[in-house]
């Protein structure tokens, strides 16, 4: 608190502003729904602004990823309490028009992942965070990040190789 007055709030705002495109990309991949993604980004920005003065330095970007990841976890938790969970991967007409089947497949593959695994995979391959940064975002040891990443990749590969995951095979 003592050096709070010395902090450059303008710099903080600029860092947040600069991170918005990446946050939208991450949220888009996490939720697979453009509107839900922007809701999530908006909530993240509001939280960030609200605790602007509590931010004690460090990497603003990682901090924003942490907020967004936690908000998404809360969102999924409240969704899971609802009786019907609608698939959200069709709310994207522009993408439907695209001929790339691979792009639809990767989306479905990601949809089969456990949330923590999907988060770890996206933060590493899409957002380019280091294992250490992902560990901070997820609040777990690096070893846990690595095992989530390994399981995520194995699952995506299995899905794309045509081995439908157990859950889907039941159907």
């Amino acid at each position: 608190m003592g050096d709070g007055g010395e902090r450059d709030l303008g710099g903080f705002r600029q860092d947040v502003e600069a991170a918005i495109p990446a946050l939208r990309r991450y949220a888009r991949a996490l939720t697979r729904d453009g509107d839900v993604a922007d809701d999530l980004v908006q909530d993240t920005l509001v939280r960030a602004l609200r605790s602007e003065r509590l931010f004690l330095g460090g990497d603003v970007r990682s901090w924003l990823y942490t907020i967004l990841t936690n908000l998404n976890r809360n969102r999924l938790r409240s969704l899971s309490r609802r009786p019907a969970l609608m698939p959200m991967d069709d709310n994207d007409a522009a993408d439907m028009a695209g001929p790339e089947a691979g792009s639809r497949d990767i989306e479905r593959a990601l949809a089969t992942l456990v949330e923590d695994q999907r988060t770890a995979l996206l933060l590493v391959v899409l957002e380019g965070l280091s294992y250490r940064e992902v560990a901070e975002v997820q609040g777990v040891p690096i070893g846990t990040v690595m095992s989530r990443l390994a399981r995520a990749r194995a699952q995506v590969k299995a899905f794309l190789d045509g081995e439908r995951p157990a859950l889907r095979r039941v159907k």
Binding site: P21, R24, R25, Q42, V46, I106, A109, V125, V156
Partner: peptide, 29 residues
């Protein structure tokens, strides 16, 4: 793994290049 990472980046990379909508304008928020 590399190919899948590339698929993910191709699939979602565009979301970071699209113009940021007004409701995410930081000054406004």
């Amino acid at each position: 793994w590399r190919a899948h990472a590339e698929l993910i980046r191709v699939r979602y990379g565009g979301a970071a290049r699209n113009p940021v909508p007004a409701r995410l304008n930081l000054a406004r928020l």
